[in-house]
Computed example of a mutant assay.
Amino acid sequence: MSARVEPAAQPERRQRPRNEPVAYIVTEDGEERIEWISEPRVVQTVDDLIESGARGVSSLECKGVRFSSYVHKLRRNHGITIETKRERHGGKFAGNHGRCILISKVRRAQGVS
Score class of each variant (00 low, 15 high):
V43H: 03
S113D: 09
E39G: 01
P7C: 01
H72F: 15
I50V: 11
S52N: 06
I80D: 00
G64I: 09
E31K: 11
V106E: 03
G53H: 06
A94P: 12
E12V: 14
R18D: 11
L60R: 15
H89V: 07
C62L: 01
E35D: 03
S69H: 12
E31T: 14
T81R: 14
V43D: 08
Q44F: 09
R108V: 03
G98F: 07
H78N: 12
R76L: 14
A9F: 03
G90V: 13
P11A: 05
K73N: 02
E31Y: 02
K92Q: 11
Y70M: 08
V42C: 09
V112G: 00
N19Y: 12
I34L: 06
V65D: 14
V112A: 10
V106L: 02
R88G: 13
H97Q: 14
E83N: 10
G98Q: 10
S58H: 02
W36N: 09
R99Y: 06
V42F: 00
I103F: 08
R55M: 10
K85L: 11
H72P: 02
I34F: 00
N19H: 08
P17N: 09
E87M: 04
P21R: 04
S59E: 15
E6T: 02
E20V: 12
C100P: 00
I82H: 01
R66K: 09
